[in-house]
Design a protein around this nucleic acid. Structure first.
Lengths: 202, 202
DNA sequence: ACCAGGCCGTGACAATTGTCAGAGGTGCCT
DNA sequence: AGGCACCTCTGACAATTGTCACGGCCTGGT
């Protein structure tokens, strides 16, 4: 029996996947969590063979959890299951030690088979997605630029961001200006959107 | 047998729900679509008892499709299944003639039962959500303000929006200013975000 | 020890954005 | 006919944002 830990924030999706995987004769969902924070503690307890992680979760992200799992439970294979096939996500997932990357816009039928394949030691990654990721520019933003962009995502003013990050408004404006240049956009809102779309934030 | 039409853009979610509902002895998923545009034509063809519609779909939205279904196939019950329990969505769904509103963050187990209940003529709507919707202010934005806000969601400049909507920049600025006032925000980005969050757009 | 690159800041300037006070026009309701 | 709500536009002004050029402070690599 393949023991699975399933991390997904949308309860209905989580439940549906759990039932579906449970129908496979050789797969057993031994734990389900709805937040990123629960992933590592739960995994330490149940010792799953495969962790199936969404990226965008409350608490820590699935990518961060993947890094921690790789460190603390190296024998547990990590597979990322996400809504967005963003180049930055694929890159980060692989860097975090994931051995599988599946998009939620693919057919469900692939899921169980993908799990079996990663357990056999194979890497599951759509070749077209891999190529697109390699073709796409890697994250050009510095850590500080990422911070500032992330802080601007809710439409905050520069003064707000400066206050929140304990920086001077001028500095924030400089970082934003740099980010606008690097993203090839025209203002901070566009910059934040494209950075997010490319998976360059969080 | 209860005949279901399932509209949901995320293939994995759609497939999982279809399998799950198929496991129920009295339910049969007779059609699955991934875009809003396909809903009405498909429904006209297969004549489902219940249409289970996501709101945010490519093409037309589930809410628009619900309105059309109510007109063209009044005997087909419409149930909305959505990620976001936005007050504006609930309000619009009910106004569009939907008899059920389910959030994807609820348990899957409720789904089949909810379908049976709407078919018996009951209305399925979480009482707490209904109360929150009634408590929340109804959409205060005029049609034009909505247009302008929606056009500003991607971070476009006022000049861009004006060009796209064939309005003068001054007019766009006025609408945005009005929207900022009505949403109680400080700039167009915040205004667009809160309007979207409340389900006041599209 | 030196340099490159990142971090933090300043000041000045131009462009964009947000506010306010107008002034018409339409269509709907009473 | 009049009132009302909405649409469209203008011009002026203040505030915010974006750009540029600059200087200083660390840190890691050579």
């Amino acid at each position: 029996m393949i023991r699975i830990l399933l991390a997904e924030d949308q309860a209905m999706m989580r439940g549906a996947l759990a039932v579906l995987l449970g129908l496979e004769g050789d797969i057993e969902v031994v734990a389900q969590v709805g937040t990123g924070t629960e992933i590592v503690p739960t995994a330490l307890e149940v010792r799953p063979d495969v962790a199936l992680l969404d990226i965008e979760l409350p608490g820590i992200s699935g990518l961060e959890a993947a890094r921690e799992l790789a460190e603390q439970i190296p024998e547990c294979r990590v597979m990322i299951l996400t809504t967005f096939s963003r180049p930055g996500y694929v890159r980060e997932a692989m860097a975090a030690g994931a051995v599988g990357f599946l998009a939620k816009d693919g057919p469900v039928e692939e899921l169980a088979d993908a799990i079996r394949r990663v357990l056999r030691g194979e890497t599951v990654l759509d070749p077209a997605l891999a190529a697109a990721t390699l073709r796409a520019a890697p994250n050009p933003l510095t850590a500080r630029e990422r911070d500032v962009l992330a802080a601007s995502e809710n439409g905050s003013s520069i003064a707000d961001i400066a206050g929140r990050l304990f920086l001077s408004p001028s500095t924030v404006r400089n970082y934003l200006s740099a980010a606008i240049g690097k993203t090839g956009t025209r203002n901070k809102t566009e910059a934040a959107l494209t950075a997010r779309r490319n998976g360059w934030l969080a």
